[in-house]
Write a protein that binds this DNA or RNA. Structure first.
Lengths: 243, 243
DNA sequence: CGACACATTGACCAGACTCAAAGCTAGTGG
DNA sequence: CCACTAGCTTTGAGTCTGGTCAATGTGTCG
């Protein structure tokens, strides 16, 4: 029976060198596994959580809601991510996290996590590094939202997820789970669902991707990457990403 | 003669409780002061710096450049910020930092900073917290780019800077330095300079702001804030921001 | 078989872009 | 002290990407 820290370890190992000391320390983490249904919130803006959520399986996104109830998804999360690591150091969450499909999550108390971090200071570096990378991802989303066309932006998201899935060993880089509706995609891209539909058709028409029944299949990664102006440097993944 | 750690301390103090132990530790930081001219880069994407830059005076922005040489500014930095704190934990920078006006900066070696952080572990929490907040700022920029109109987005930037300047005691909330051309503003908003000009005229026409000779003057913060859908929660500033 | 949610299409609209020209303004040198 | 310049700002006119509204397909599940 594998411990849930395995996926976390795989994640941390993809962004920085880890040792057996850290591996063992992570196994001291305890937490309850919880299941969430599609559409359910894991945590909500304004909450003051005493614990963090480690995604084990499924698919989760972070989002912010505007007063007019329009929604902006600011990040997608693959298994191994801790979307609300944030809450360790700020009282009040400034965003919400929701499952886009049936997902399982381990709930780890701040206190438990703090204790483990204290016992192995090298882990602090790794987690801090993780925070820095998530900041880099947001930065890149700002660039994508500001300077890419709809088609490029969509292609960029597909490239990013391919790289991130690969980093935790959950994809060969070509096929991966993406249980997200066009409505949700539009909330991530800052577009309308109608335009997302047309944009998807364009990528399909160019034989770059397929997307159906919750899966993405990249048909030509090189051309997709070129179209998206995708440069994986911002993900700071150690192992080389398969071209 | 005040030590450069004063401004840093003011910054850290605005985001989390600090003690005299931390204050004293920060005074152990050493570094050379460097001046940068308008338009000069402090560090560049792809660099692998051995030191961080603490902004003392002036105005600095982080940006990413696309292959077609279009530019996206992803963040503005006021004195007290360390725009490339990032470089402490990732080898290669994934963005560049430039001065938009004559600025002075203290260059602190990673090694020196690491030593100080090691001696006072509470400082690690503070700096980590700083990273988390900068991630929150990026997140909010994603939302602004995706879901706000040009006018709202511009108003949002003015509100954010007002709050951040106030936090470090460099503004009463109404007037602050903003030595940024409309061209640069357009790179931050993901718009064209022409449209930024028209958008600025709209805010001026509504008697919400003035902007000239490198300064912003907010005429009606409440209305500006309402227009921008600005909610300062994401800045996680401890002291209440004057309404 | 229906119902519901999601995807797709069509027709029209608007916010932001492009290109190009003309005004300002601060700094420079005569 | 003024003319000149370079960079920044402003204006106008036409275009295009992406938005809006509304209807029609399609697929899945009870």
């Amino acid at each position: 029976m594998e411990h849930f820290s395995d996926i976390l370890m795989r994640r941390l190992d993809s962004i920085g060198p880890t040792s057996s000391v850290e591996r063992e320390a992570l196994q001291m983490l305890t937490g309850q596994t919880r299941a969430f249904e599609r559409g359910q919130d894991l945590v909500r803006e304004g909450d003051k959580p005493e614990e963090c959520m480690l995604v084990l399986s499924g698919f989760v996104c972070s989002y912010k809601v505007l007063p007019d109830s329009s929604k902006q998804i600011v990040s997608f999360h693959v298994p191994g991510d801790i979307p609300d690591l944030h809450s360790m150091f700020v009282e009040e969450l400034d965003f919400s996290v929701a499952a886009t499909t049936q997902s399982t999550v381990v709930v780890i108390s701040h206190e438990n996590l703090r204790r483990v971090l204290k016992s192995v200071p090298e882990l602090v570096d790794l987690f801090w590094r993780d925070t820095l990378i998530s900041a880099a991802v947001f930065r890149t989303w700002v660039m994508a939202a500001g300077r890419l066309t709809a088609t490029e932006h969509l292609a960029h998201i597909f490239c990013e997820l391919s790289a991130r899935y690969q980093a935790v060993g959950l994809s060969d880089g070509n096929t991966y789970d993406f249980p997200v509706t066009q409505q949700e995609l539009s909330d991530a891209l800052g577009l309308t669902p109608v335009h997302v539909n047309r944009t998807l058709q364009e990528l399909r028409g160019k034989d770059l991707i397929e997307m159906r029944s919750g899966k993405v299949n990249i048909l030509d990664y090189d051309r997709l990457k070129a179209l998206a102006n995708f440069n994986p440097n911002y993900l700071h993944i150690r192992k080389p990403i398969a071209a």
